[in-house]
Simulated assay, not measured.
Amino acid sequence: MKKFGSMLMAMALGMSMLVGCGSGTANTGTTGTEEGAKTIDKLTVAFVPSKEPAEIVTATEPLKGMLKEELAKEGYNVGEVEITVGTSFEAVGEALSAGTADVGLIPGGTYVLYDDGAEPILTATRDALSIESDNAKDWNDKKPTTGLDEQVTFYRSLIIAGPSEKGQELAAKVNAGEALTWEDLNSANWSMMSTTSPAGYIYPSLWLQENYGKSLTDLASVVQADSYGSAMARLASGQLDIVVGYADLRRDNEEKWTSEFGRTASIWDETNVIGVTPGIYNDTVSVSTTSKIMTDEFKKALQNAFINIGNTDAGKEVIAIYSHNGYQVASPSDYDNERAAQKLIQELNAAK
Results as ranks from 00 to 15, higher is better:
residue 4 F to C: 10
residue 5 G to A: 12
residue 9 M to S: 10
residue 12 A to H: 02
residue 14 G to A: 15
residue 14 G to F: 12
residue 16 S to I: 05
residue 19 V to H: 05
residue 21 C to F: 13
residue 22 G to Q: 09
residue 29 G to H: 09
residue 38 K to Q: 15
residue 39 T to S: 15
residue 41 D to V: 13
residue 45 V to W: 09
residue 50 S to M: 05
residue 50 S to G: 05
residue 51 K to I: 10
residue 53 P to I: 11
residue 54 A to N: 14
residue 58 T to D: 14
residue 59 A to F: 06
residue 65 G to S: 11
residue 80 E to A: 07
residue 80 E to C: 05
residue 81 V to D: 04
residue 83 I to A: 00
residue 84 T to S: 07
residue 88 S to W: 06
residue 90 E to P: 01
residue 91 A to D: 11
residue 92 V to K: 01
residue 94 E to F: 04
residue 95 A to D: 08
residue 95 A to V: 03
residue 96 L to Q: 05
residue 98 A to T: 05
residue 100 T to Q: 01
residue 104 G to R: 01
residue 108 G to N: 05
residue 108 G to W: 02
residue 109 G to I: 02
residue 113 L to S: 12
residue 117 G to Y: 07
residue 120 P to N: 02
residue 123 T to E: 00
residue 125 T to M: 12
residue 125 T to L: 11
residue 126 R to D: 03
residue 127 D to L: 11
residue 129 L to D: 09
residue 134 D to K: 11
residue 137 K to R: 09
residue 137 K to G: 03
residue 139 W to G: 07
residue 143 K to A: 15
residue 143 K to V: 13
residue 147 G to E: 13
residue 149 D to S: 15
residue 154 F to M: 14
residue 155 Y to T: 12
residue 158 L to S: 06
residue 160 I to E: 01
residue 162 G to T: 06
residue 168 Q to A: 11
residue 169 E to K: 08
residue 176 A to N: 15
residue 184 D to W: 01
residue 190 W to V: 08
residue 194 S to L: 07
residue 202 I to G: 02
residue 206 L to Y: 05
residue 207 W to F: 14
residue 208 L to M: 10
residue 208 L to A: 04
residue 208 L to E: 04
residue 211 N to K: 13
residue 212 Y to C: 10
residue 218 D to M: 06
residue 218 D to R: 03
residue 224 Q to C: 12
residue 226 D to A: 09
residue 230 S to K: 09
residue 231 A to G: 03
residue 235 L to A: 09
residue 246 Y to A: 06
residue 252 D to K: 12
residue 252 D to I: 14
residue 253 N to E: 06
residue 255 E to V: 15
residue 257 W to C: 05
residue 260 E to H: 04
residue 264 T to M: 08
residue 265 A to K: 15
residue 269 D to V: 02
residue 270 E to D: 14
residue 271 T to A: 03
residue 273 V to K: 01
residue 273 V to D: 00
residue 282 N to W: 03
residue 286 S to G: 13
residue 286 S to F: 09
residue 287 V to R: 01
residue 289 T to C: 07
residue 294 M to V: 12
residue 294 M to D: 11
residue 294 M to E: 09
residue 303 Q to A: 08
residue 304 N to R: 10
residue 306 F to V: 12
residue 306 F to Y: 15
residue 307 I to C: 07
residue 311 N to Y: 06
residue 312 T to Q: 11
residue 313 D to H: 05
residue 315 G to W: 02
residue 316 K to C: 00
residue 316 K to F: 00
residue 316 K to N: 02
residue 318 V to I: 14
residue 319 I to N: 01
residue 321 I to M: 13
residue 327 Y to M: 04
residue 334 D to H: 13
residue 335 Y to L: 06
residue 336 D to W: 10
residue 338 E to I: 15
residue 339 R to M: 13
residue 341 A to E: 10
residue 342 Q to M: 14
residue 342 Q to D: 08
residue 346 Q to Y: 07
residue 347 E to K: 07
residue 349 N to D: 11
residue 352 K to T: 09
residue 352 K to Y: 02
